[in-house]
C-alpha cells in the first residue's frame, strides 16, 4: 500500500514536472527576447541595468525594417489563401473520393513535407534559375511564395482532412433533395460545415509562412522578409533592435493562436447545446 502510494507520487512528480519543464524550456528564449527588448544598453548582456523603449523607435527608423514587414505580410497572406484553398480541395479528394492513381496523388501531395526545407528551397531555386534564364526574370517575392505554397499546402491538407473525416454527408443529400445545385451545395452546406478546419488551416498556414526562414532565404532573391532580415542582421552582430522586433511579432501571432482557440471552443459549445 505504501509502495503504491509512493509510486503514484513518483509518477505524478515525473508527469507534472516534465510538463512544467517543457514550458520553461519553450519560453526561456521567448521571455529573454521580450525582456531584452526593453534594455537601455547597446549590448545584450545580463544583468540589464536600466530599461527604456528606445530600441523600438530605432527599429522603426531602420530603413530595411518596414519593407521587410510589408514583404512578410504580403507573402503570408498570399500563401495563406492559396495553400488553404489547395489544401482544402486536396483534403476532400483524399478523404471523400476514390479514384485511380489516388495513392500516387497522396504520395506527391505529401512529399514536400518530408523534404528538408533548405533542400526543397535549393532544388526549386535551381529550377527558377533555369526558368529565369529562359523567361528573363530573377527570383523575387513571388518565387518565394510558390515555395511557401508547395511546402505549406500539405500542412493545410492534413488539418482540413481531420475535419472532412467527421463530416456528415447526408446533409448534402438533403440539400440536393431540396433542389440545390452542386455549386449551391458546396457553397451553402459543404464549406460552412468544414469552416472550422479551413479556418485553423488558414491560421496555421499564415503563421508557418510568416515565420519561414529556409525557403524565403533560398528563393526570395534580394527581397527580404522579417526572418531573413533578422538572420542577416544577427550574422553581422547582435543589436537590441532584434529583441524589439521579436516582441512586436510575437504579439500578433499570440492573438491569432488565441483567436483560433476561442473560435474552436465557441463551435464546440454550440455543438453540445
Amino acid at each position: 500500500m505504501i509502495a503504491d502510494r509512493f509510486e503514484r507520487r513518483l509518477v505524478d512528480a515525473i508527469l507534472y514536472g516534465s510538463v512544467l519543464a517543457i514550458l520553461v524550456f519553450f519560453y526561456i528564449p521567448i521571455i529573454t527576447l521580450v525582456v531584452f527588448s526593453f534594455t537601455e544598453s547597446r549590448f545584450l548582456t545580463y544583468p540589464i541595468e536600466s530599461y527604456s523603449t528606445k530600441w523600438y523607435f530605432e527599429l522603426i527608423a531602420d530603413k530595411d525594417f518596414l519593407p521587410a514587414l510589408g514583404n512578410s505580410a504580403l507573402l503570408a497572406v498570399t500563401t495563406c489563401i492559396l495553400a488553404t484553398a489547395l489544401g482544402t480541395a486536396g483534403a476532400i479528394a483524399w478523404i471523400r473520393l476514390q479514384f485511380r492513381f489516388k495513392r500516387v496523388f497522396q504520395i506527391i501531395s505529401f512529399a514536400p513535407l518530408l523534404f528538408p526545407q533548405l533542400l526543397l528551397g535549393v532544388v526549386m531555386l535551381l529550377w527558377f534559375s533555369v526558368l529565369g534564364n529562359w523567361l528573363e526574370f530573377s527570383p523575387s517575392l513571388w518565387t518565394a511564395a510558390i515555395g511557401h505554397i508547395i511546402y505549406i499546402t500539405p500542412f493545410a491538407l492534413v488539418i482540413v482532412a481531420v475535419q472532412v473525416v467527421g463530416f456528415d454527408d447526408t446533409l448534402e443529400d438533403a440539400a440536393r433533395d431540396l433542389g440545390a445545385s452542386d455549386i449551391e451545395v458546396l457553397k451553402e452546406v459543404t464549406l460552412p460545415l468544414l469552416w472550422p478546419g479551413i479556418m485553423s488551416a488558414a491560421i496555421f498556414a499564415f503563421l508557418l509562412s510568416w515565420g519561414n526562414f529556409y525557403l524565403t532565404y533560398s528563393l526570395s532573391g534580394t527581397a527580404r522578409t522579417l526572418p531573413t532580415y533578422v538572420f542577416s542582421g544577427i550574422a553581422v552582430g547582435s543589436s537590441p533592435i532584434y529583441p524589439a522586433l521579436a516582441t512586436l511579432t510575437f504579439v500578433p501571432s499570440l492573438l491569432l493562436v488565441g483567436f483560433a482557440d476561442f473560435y474552436r471552443r465557441k463551435l464546440a459549445k454550440r455543438k453540445t447545446v
Binding site: F213, F231, A246, G258
Partner: peptide, 22 residues
C-alpha cells in the same frame, strides 16, 4: 496545448537568437 503551439509557431530565427542571448 496553446502555449506549446504558440511557442512552436513563433519565428524560428528569433527563437534561435533568443537562445544565443541565454
Amino acid at each position: 496545448k496553446i502555449l506549446i503551439v504558440f511557442a512552436f509557431l513563433a519565428d524560428a530565427v528569433l527563437k534561435t537568437f533568443g537562445w544565443v542571448l541565454v
